[in-house]
Design a protein around this nucleic acid. Sequence first.
RNA 1: GGGCGCGUAGCCUAGCUUGGAUAGGGCACCGGGUUCCUAACCCGGCGGUCGAGGGUUCAAAUCCCUCCGCGCCCGCCA
Length: 593
Amino acid sequence: MTSSVAVDPWAPTLEAVLAGLSAAAVGAGVPADPALLGAALNVDGGPEGDLAFAVHRFAKGAGRAPPEVAEAFAAHFVPIPEIASVRAKGAYVNFTADPTRLARSTLELVFARGDRYGHGEATSEPACVEHTSANPTGPFHIGRVRNAIIGDTFARALRASGAPVTTQYYVDDMGRQAAMITWIWSKPRAEWPEPVRRAVEGEEVPGEKPDRHRGRPYPALSAYLKEHPEAQEEVARLVHRIESGDAPPEHRELSESILAGMLASLARLKIGFDELVWESDFLRNGSVERVLERLRSTPHSVREENGAWAIDASGHGLPKESTRIVVQRGNGTSLYVTRDVAYHLSKFARFARVLDVLGQDHQLHARTLDVLLEEIGETRRPTYLIYQDITVPEGGRMSTRGGSAVWLDHLLEEAVSRARGEVVARREDLAEEAVDAIAEAVATGAVRYHIVRVAPEKPVVFRWEDALSFEGRSGPFVQYSYARASSVLRKGGADRPPYPFDAARLSHPEEAALVRVIARLPRTVAYVARSAHVQALAGYAHDLADQFNRFYHAVPVLRSEAERASRIALVAAVRQTLGNSLDLLGLARLETM
RNA sequence: GGGCGCGUAGCCUAGCUUGGAUAGGGCACCGGGUUCCUAACCCGGCGGUCGAGGGUUCAAAUCCCUCCGCGCCCGCCA
């Protein structure tokens, strides 16, 4: 609860009420620890007001009946301008904010802060959010994209909360998977294993994206290698070559072109990265070797018979079967987790907070990483944001091999086509390019919102009809509400500030309710940055759009008389706040739909 | 077997971090609303043993324990 007057319309009211309660406790003769007062004050009100104060614990401490104590608190609460009414009811003291005052301070703050309304005050603690980091071996399926959407949304919220945030995509160009891609593509097509060639030929489409094209052999190749040890051996030799700095010239180019195709898809979702961090860099600059030296010299290091190095991690609470962490293969090459240690040391050197967005299948990896960091005497740890998989209705995770994967590009294609139909059906007046732009924004907005609205720790079953919904709790609903607000302002000749208003005119219940939702954004942003509960941002945007639509249906804006200017200002504040919410969610602001 | 996560109306989901008054939404379904600022909307209705049991507490969807169901992981893969 460090929200400041400068960024949160509720802050002055909360501070004043808390101070008032503290004084009232003295007057009422009820012992009350000031710290506990805050905990008993329910900020989101309840059925009887804006703030609800639960007196039970203080009544108990004083040995008095709760309703009597509530009455005593209310009676001794010295009136303050922020609060219009104080009423005891049962074991609660209910406070109602002065609606005019709240409307005035909220709208003033929204207009003063503009695109920064909802944001916190700048802090100097740099943070790094690593997310997505999918291997550059083929196109994204929607399961992988959950990582990107959660990570990108969280990074936006963290940045808005005031922290300097750097986002990173860790590109694994060193492992066996990248080597497989190089192995196959460095051969002439005629020398490809028969099953791999068959799987690819006839499927390829001229001009297809590089991630699609270069990734095509991967599933069949993966299956082929399982059955062919001699081919596996070739790949292993290639891994060794790559790691010793003797990668075939096409190796990096393949990773880069596949990655470029993948990033192009994410860019449609407004997901980008401040930095691409290549795993190979940590080998080239010697930091992996330095990590290995430190690991080999710890008391728990073990030399295996074939020359491999491991760490005996018993006593770290790991599952019994994984107490031996191999950090270097018998053939001298490093492992993913070892390179990840080097990567994380580089992050700790630059950032005060290090956050990794990981699928739950990487949970054990995360714990292993923690153990290795401890082994080399590093005291800092990343904070892990773990999300659950997206599964398919038939059961099981999305699998490229099993053909159950839903490709992001395919999903977007479907979504755009459907969105296009919706636009054309209601807007005959629009030019082709305008229709295309709206369809793209609606489609990508629907997909992003559909993923972010669910808590990361919940498993998600992918269903086309849900992902393509443009109604109800959806991205397009929020975008539509923004477009509607824009339209009102346009027609009112008021699409630019200033927006003069008289807060006392905003007295309709739907107006008061709308002001309250607008005023909630700063708290919501702070909460998401603190908790990583990104779904709260989606819930907030829906609530605001929903209340705006109620207001819109309940009272006229442009056709009102005395209230016209004030209502226009309220709509302008809604538009700003909805716009900021869309920004936080990575959805496009649409001026018309 | 062990570790982690999940379980809220027919379906999806918020609330759980920080316990507080009749558990919020959405989809579907039923009934209404457009000579009027965008109906991708709004109003009303229907629908809940918050997986089960026990515990802590003045108070439990929320905290603790046990159990059940589902998912993931337990590689010299990443």
